[in-house]
Design a protein around this nucleic acid. Structure first.
Lengths: 326, 326
DNA sequence: GGAGGTCCTGTAACCGGTTTCATCACTCGG
DNA sequence: CCGAGTGATGAAACCGGTTACAGGACCTCC
């Protein structure tokens, strides 16, 4: 069995209070006593129990982060940015993936009991659950999800880049645009669509349920038999990549005949030469960590809703550039 | 302040022991008493403190996982597989990324104090640290890293697939092979090289320090001025993708003039049509979680060193197939 | 009617730390 | 020489649970 603070106290001939003071340097201890305690602690290989400490301090020194998945680069990067800052702030990070889990809400509540605060990415838990957490006094920051009540949030700006993207297409002579995605499923997608509409009023909307490659590849068929538009503005990269593959297989000239854009700038987008919009993923995570720290330390009481800028990335699927693969 | 077990006991007119029994269903309680306790708990919105519980049970019900990064899909998938199984086993998951951290060893030791056991991916911490952890009685499982002492490990098989990959190239008529990577930096790479050598004795070795795209793109230059081999067998996909981009830019016929293979099957490899070797990443994580659980529960005392099979994935950079993008 | 058993519940010790407060020794100024 | 102040230390309460053990109520069977 591992040594406890009482073992060290006995060995050094002092009280446990003194050992505690030496271990955490919290109060003056006579040098001679301090050395004796240090020696005893070393001899017994004493390492203070985090559980005991946490119970006494009534804090976990840990934060949670909830995400749907780590498969794509998106959430992985956010998690990394979050972990980096949390570590700097001296907090451990607990993770919870809701993929393939039907009890996500319960799992999140259980997790909230194990940390001082948590970050929730995307639509992993219901609004009701978020509100319940907040009502229970949990410290919560939402990322990539519209604000719920007075809960903090951090999001990537969508509308400005959507406008820039659309203007870029118009500048290239594209007139008939088709937006692929369903604005009603996600406020993010709605914002992107709204941005596109602001610049190109006559943009068509092609509803699609799943925003993945299969759906993208599938829906191309409809257009091949009918007329192709000048450009497909996809709600995300997966969709765009799926369409791209299918269009290329059909021998359609890209970007000559039709232009394609995505959103997110996943790694594969680089290899596919896909024009897209890059989000500051790591920065989203880092910002969330800082906001959460403010909540936990109580240094801020007013809710904050941050919006981080995004960046248009132009590649071969819109302009036939000679830019290197980078 | 949140209600504690004592508040509930007072409210229900019973002792804290009875409340505990009701909350955890650990012993028979008279139905009438149980209902009274339940009602009191509900009224006070009592949720047992995990800290108190953990201290009493002397367990964290949490496992750690240490990884270098999450940027590539490799570690992200391993972490996901791990998290899924850990959650099924009722354990939370703590993460620690060592990227850009110079005190990785200390951080890992600190983390070990906060969980019942941990998984270490790759060469994130020194062998000495792993041994120190094991000596302190920590439960440790290594993944994608050669065994250290009697510590459990889970690895992906390398040699068999390396042989299959090489045979595939020979079957296609390739004779002059160049292996790109440094077998001395990683036992994994050494295994892969050894497997290649077993089938093609005259394979050349091209040492390269960093196994990333830049390095790959860079080293192509040397070969363009001299003679190209029949095939480049790269130690990983990033390297291969870097070379591929540079070769294509130079107008080299792939796979006609030169074939290129990678290792890992990252997502971008699919889009690039790169022949590679797929590792069962999620399964690596899941297996590690199960081994760790055996260690923690004490149901196994003999160390285990598992090796999971890998799979050759043939794509356009070796054979000019018509296989769909999948 | 009493011994023995079962069922339920409370008392109290325990997990391993932190921290308040009291105490005691010692220094210093008057 | 004495009272006040200062610095180091220990006793004990506390954080919020779990659980071994004891004991009382009640039932059963001889």
């Amino acid at each position: 069995m591992r040594a406890t603070i009482r073992d060290v106290a006995r060995e050094a001939g002092v009280s446990i209070a003194t050992v505690s003071r030496v271990m955490r340097d919290s109060a003056a201890v006579r040098p001679a006593t301090r050395d004796r305690v240090r020696a005893a602690a070393d001899a017994l290989e004493f390492v203070p129990s985090q559980l005991g400490r946490q119970l006494a301090e009534r804090r976990h020194a840990a934060n949670g982060i909830v995400f749907p998945d780590l498969s794509g680069p998106y959430y992985a990067e956010v998690v990394l940015g979050y972990e980096t800052v949390a570590a700097e702030l001296g907090r451990s990070v607990l993770i919870l993936s809701t993929r393939g889990r039907d009890d996500a809400d319960d799992a999140v509540h259980a997790m909230a009991e194990r940390c001082d605060g948590l970050v929730i990415l995307g639509r992993t838990v219901s609004d009701a659950s978020v509100e319940r957490l907040a009502a229970r006094g949990a410290n919560v920051v939402l990322v990539a999800r519209p604000p719920v009540g007075g809960v903090d949030s951090v999001n990537a700006e969508s509308r400005t880049s959507a406008r820039a993207l659309t203007q870029h297409l118009l500048d290239l002579g594209a007139r008939r645009l088709v937006f692929v995605g369903d604005p009603s499923t996600s406020p993010d997608v709605a914002e992107r669509f709204a941005g596109v509409q602001e610049v190109s009023q006559e943009v068509e909307l092609h509803h699609v349920d799943d925003l993945d490659e299969t759906a993208g590849a599938h829906l191309v068929g409809d257009y091949l038999t009918r007329a192709l538009p000048d450009a497909f503005v996809c709600a995300n990269d997966e969709l765009a990549l799926g369409m791209l593959g299918r269009l290329q297989a059909a021998g359609v000239d890209i970007p000559g005949r039709v232009k394609v854009t995505g959103w997110d700038d996943v790694m594969a987008a680089r290899y596919a030469g896909l024009t897209t919009v890059r989000q500051p993923m790591r920065e989203l995570g880092a910002t969330a960590a800082r906001l959460l720290d403010e909540l936990i330390s109580g240094s801020r009481t007013q809710p904050r809703h941050d919006e981080l800028p995004t960046e248009l990335v132009i590649r071969r699927t819109t302009t036939l550039g000679k830019e290197p693969l980078s």
